[in-house]
Amino acid sequence: MGGMGTTMRNLILLMAFSAALGVAAWSLASATGRVDADERVSAMLPPPSRPALWDPSEHLQALSFGGQAAIGVALLAFAWKGLRRRAS
C-alpha cells in the first residue's frame, strides 16, 4: 500500500502544483491579451437573446476558479485516504 499511498500523495501534490500553474497560466493568458476561445466564438454570434439568469461578479468568479481547483485537490485527497484505508 505504500506505493499506492505515495502515488496518490504525489498526485495530490501534482494537482496542487497544477492549480498554482493554472493561476499563473491564466494570469499569463490575460497579461498577453489572449482571448478565451469560447469568448472568441461567442463574438462571432448574434448578441445573446436574453440576459443571464445568474451573473456572478468578477471578484466571485476569480475566487470561484481558485475554489474549483481546491475542490479538485480535496476530492483527490479524499480518494487517496480512501484507497489507502481500503488497501490496508
Binding site: S18, A19, A25, Q68, I71, V73, L75
Partner: peptide, 14 residues
Amino acid sequence: AGYLFTLTALKLPS
C-alpha cells in the same frame, strides 16, 4: 471528479 474539477479550472494560453 477531482481531476475533472482541477483541469477544467486551468485556462491555458494557446
